[in-house]
C-alpha cells in the first residue's frame, strides 16, 4: 500500500487552546477512508489544516505530507494544484454563477469532463445545469452540486466533510455508488462522517476523539467502537450531543 497522505504527529493550538493533540494518520492511495468521531473531536479542523483553509496553513507541531511533499505553509491554490481538494460541510453560495459554469471551473483541467454525467451521479438531472449556485438551491441540492464539482475536478485526494449530512440519499447504495465512482476514477477519498453505516462502505476507517486518532482499521470494527463508546460517551456529555 502506497500512502498518498501522511499526517505526522500533528499538533495544533488555536488561541492557545490545544485542538489537535498529536494526530497520526496515513491515507493510502486509492482508498476510501472514513473518519468518525464525536462533535468537537477536531475532524473539520484536521480537514481544514490539510487544505490550508484560513489561517490553518501549518500545524503548531508536526507535518502533513502529500506524495513526498510537505504541505506546511502552502497556499490553498498550491495544494489544489498538487491534487488535493475539499468539500465543505456547508458549501458556499455564489451569485450569478450557474451550475454548469461552476462544474466547468472545477473540471477545467479534466480532459474527460462531462458535466451532465457528474450531475447524474449525485442524483440531479441536466435541468440543474442552468440553475444558479446561489441561495435558490436547497441545502441538499447545494451539497449535491458540491459533490458533482469534485467528480468534475477529478482530484487525486478529495476531503469530504460530512458529504452525507443534509442529503436524503434515497438509499445507502446511492451514496456508495457516488463514492465508488470517484474512487474508480482515481480519486482517493478522506471522508468525515457521523454515520457508522456510511463509514462501513469505506475501505478503512479511523476514529478521532479529543484531538487524536485513537484507532485506525477495519471500518466495521471502528464503526462498532464509535457506536458503543462515543455515542454513550456523548450522552454523558450532553453539550456534545446534537448536530446529527
Amino acid at each position: 500500500m502506497e500512502p498518498i497522505l501522511t499526517v505526522n504527529n500533528v499538533k495544533l493550538s488555536l488561541d492557545e487552546k490545544p485542538i489537535l493533540k498529536g494526530v497520526n494518520l496515513i491515507i493510502n492511495k486509492g482508498e476510501i477512508h472514513a473518519i468518525l468521531g464525536p462533535n468537537g473531536a477536531g475532524k473539520s479542523t484536521l480537514a481544514n489544516l490539510i487544505m490550508g483553509i484560513g489561517d490553518l496553513k501549518s500545524p503548531t507541531e508536526g507535518e502533513i505530507i502529500f506524495k513526498d511533499k510537505i504541505l506546511n505553509g502552502l497556499e490553498i491554490s498550491e495544494r489544489a494544484k498538487l491534487g488535493i481538494t475539499l468539500a465543505w460541510q456547508e458549501p458556499a453560495r455564489f451569485e450569478g454563477i450557474t451550475v454548469e459554469e461552476y462544474l466547468k471551473l472545477a473540471g477545467r483541467n479534466n480532459p474527460d469532463l462531462d458535466v451532465e454525467e457528474c450531475l447524474k451521479f449525485v442524483g440531479l438531472d441536466s435541468s440543474y445545469l442552468f440553475r444558479y449556485v446561489d441561495d435558490t438551491l436547497s441545502g441538499g441540492e447545494r451539497k449535491r452540486v458540491e459533490l458533482a464539482s469534485i467528480l468534475a475536478m477529478k482530484p487525486e485526494l478529495a476531503i469530504l466533510d460530512e458529504p452525507d449530512s443534509g442529503i436524503d440519499f434515497a438509499s445507502m447504495e446511492d451514496i456508495a455508488r457516488m463514492l465508488k465512482t470517484m474512487k474508480d476514477r482515481g480519486t482517493t477519498i478522506l471522508m468525515i462522517t457521523h454515520r457508522e453505516e456510511i463509514a462501513e462502505i469505506s475501505d478503512r476507517a479511523s476514529l478521532m476523539c479529543d484531538g487524536r486518532v485513537i484507532q485506525t482499521g477495519n471500518p466495521k470494527e471502528v464503526g462498532e467502537k464509535f457506536k458503543n463508546m462515543c455515542i454513550t460517551c456523548e450522552v454523558k456529555n450532553p453539550q456534545l450531543v446534537g448536530g446529527k
Binding site: 483553509i53 497556499e75 491554490s77 489544489a80 481538494t85 465543505w88 458556499a92 455564489f94 471551473l105
Partner: peptide
C-alpha cells in the same frame, strides 16, 4: 466572501 474565495481556490483557481 472568504469562503467563496477558498472554495474556488480549492478547485485550483489562483486567488
Amino acid at each position: 466572501d472568504k469562503k467563496q474565495l477558498e472554495t474556488l481556490m480549492a478547485r485550483g483557481l489562483t486567488e
